[in-house]
Design a protein around this nucleic acid. Sequence first.
DNA 1: CGAACTTTGTGCGGCTCCGCACGGAACCTC
DNA 2: GAGGTTCCGTGCGGAGCCGCACAAAGTTCG
Lengths: 238, 238
Amino acid sequence: MKVEEQGTRGEGNQLLARMPAALADLMFAHLEPVSLPQGLVIEQPNEPVEHIYFPTGGVISIVAMNGEGNAQIEAGLVGREGMSGTMVVMGTDRSPHQTTVQIAGTGYRLEADRLRDALEQEPLRERLLHYCHTLSVQTAHTALANAKLKLDARLARWLLMCHDRIDGDEVMLTHDFLSIMLGVRRAGVTVSLHILEGQGLVRATRGQIRILNRRGLEEMVGGCYGAPEAEYARLMRD
Amino acid sequence: MKVEEQGTRGEGNQLLARMPAALADLMFAHLEPVSLPQGLVIEQPNEPVEHIYFPTGGVISIVAMNGEGNAQIEAGLVGREGMSGTMVVMGTDRSPHQTTVQIAGTGYRLEADRLRDALEQEPLRERLLHYCHTLSVQTAHTALANAKLKLDARLARWLLMCHDRIDGDEVMLTHDFLSIMLGVRRAGVTVSLHILEGQGLVRATRGQIRILNRRGLEEMVGGCYGAPEAEYARLMRD
DNA sequence: CGAACTTTGTGCGGCTCCGCACGGAACCTC
DNA sequence: GAGGTTCCGTGCGGAGCCGCACAAAGTTCG
């Protein structure tokens, strides 16, 4: 393991950035660069998690599903600001959710046991607990959005959260994929996208949505976007 | 502080039960019995939490709200299996949610700083982190229910979660209160309750809902009830 | 270039829930 | 027991999204 490599480990992920040097042996040295192809399942419901992923690009998605498996919904969206496998930070090895790669990207992964070792370091544990807190705030606001917002506003909220986590303004996703995350009909996504397009907020082409007007999207969501992001900013700024 | 009092402190709350004796000085001795009248606001959004509540009866409710304050939804339900103030376990002092007493009851409260002291004890911290994990699973499944279930099924789910946390089969709540938690019209709750009554699952009278057939309610919810409860059982059984 | 496939656009009937509104029933207070 | 207040039952028109279905447009591959 070359020294200059260690120096660059963790770059691009905000949880790994600016970590104390004491963690290098415990954790940074064990980070393994990986690519995250779209559709990769990185956690299965109720099965032990073996690796923790820290994206540096792309988006992964935490999906809650019911017992029968006939209903599912996105409960959390994670990009380079976060990590998968938060249940390990919470002291367990599994959760009833599924985690998949939604937008292809790159990142690092770490064996779950290496994370458990590293959590002994108080500053890391605190930082990751703070992240888990913001993630659960995000989930709570997803519950709010699912109950109170119309589809076009929910779509706008999703695009904003996604835009926060990618480079550039182009989200590479099909309507079908979006409809699964939002728990609605594919055709519903199509018409809602037309509404957003009609207001000049986005431009959709086959398999791609370009964000044109963030501010406009935020107005459309009407106060149901931003609280989780503010909580993240409050806790993670240092 | 008399010894026999210490011995009974914490009784009736599952998080406090069977705690190691080492915690007595740090935490149990500081637990203060309180009554929880309906409507009491125990946490305000984005304000520091001063006391942590451990219900021994009754139900408290974590409510997510949007920026404008014109939309709100219940994101978490807590009874004697849990606690308020989970953000303190996560290492911060506030959250964007509001917490109120939904069904009057009793409990203990603790100054937030006393909890911070007690969290130094590894067994307690692990136990409370496990609880925070199950609470966020609950929130995720609320997001699922809000997106995919019809109102009568969401109501059935809510009644089940409430029933888990009370003594007896009678939930003392008005339709109006329920409608706020579920984020729907009051009249919608009324007609949905009639549907449940028509199937013999509950019996509603003014200000009161009696659970008649739990199994039937569970069937109605169709797999969207139970996962958070199973997760709690898995992590908290010892 | 043509065939197979994926993705998107559009329409239709129907169900659910909304906002609004009003009447009646139960309970509380004096 | 009269009057006020809270809570519940009901109705109506309409918005929003559903399931279903099919056509058109774009992409891939031989």
